[in-house]
Design a binder for these strands. Structure first.
Lengths: 109, 109
DNA sequence: TTGATATGTAGGAAAAATCCTACATATAGT
DNA sequence: ACTATATGTAGGATTTTTCCTACATATCAA
């Protein structure tokens, strides 16, 4: 029930950058993605595997290339997970607003 | 600018459970939190430290106890991070809807 | 078929995370 | 002052993650 693998996959900056690239530039072959990193191609390949295991990317073979595509569905789980916490930062925001109001009162005084 | 520490902190099931407890039951002393885990108290203490470093909990000393409180603000960063991906699962949902519509058409036929 | 290209996998070194058992520290109560 | 309680920190064993260099596999092009 807990989106374990998704959170783990997102914990790596390299993997988040991969997701961003696929989001902003569309599906791409593994090699083209790897070029953008200061890391060996096999390491990027491994990161792609982790993302695939988490369901965050899908792989389709195009000739000798493998195109990776962003699969955003698992991110909905993260969003759902965040849901019950929203109340808390709303409260925080309310507190902040109250403080700011008080400061304005001080200014006016 | 990237919420690195926050994602890392959320990668652990134990730490997510700590956040949930603080969310559902309010601020609590470290020991009371530790009782809920199959893990040694010092290990829970360490997890609380990671959460504190990520800004996800705050600590206030009450006598010889230390009360931990949920600080949900960093979770806003996660929510913001998700923003640009929303478009994608909307598309996914649209595709799913289209498929379901087609299935309905098949039924009617 | 032969050689070049695109990519995954194996194996292992190094770094980081996890979790434990002492131990240190600080406060409360007697 | 003395003892018990609440909790953090140190040090270390174990596991996991990360990243590398070969190497294997598959496809394309001539």
């Amino acid at each position: 029930m807990t989106p374990d693998h998704v959170f783990t996959a997102l914990a790596s900056p390299a993997r988040r950058e991969l997701l961003r690239l696929l989001r902003d530039e569309g599906a791409q072959p593994a090699g083209r993605l790897a070029e953008r990193f200061d890391m060996s191609r096999p390491s990027v390949s491994e990161h792609l595997r982790v993302l695939r295991d988490a369901g965050l990317v899908s792989e389709t073979r195009k000739g000798r290339e493998r195109h990776y595509r962003l699969e955003a569905a698992p991110l909905m789980e993260i969003r759902d997970w965040l849901g019950p916490y929203e109340r808390f930062w709303r409260e925080r925001l309310a507190t902040l607003t109250a403080v700011l109001d008080e400061m304005e009162d001080d200014d006016a005084r």
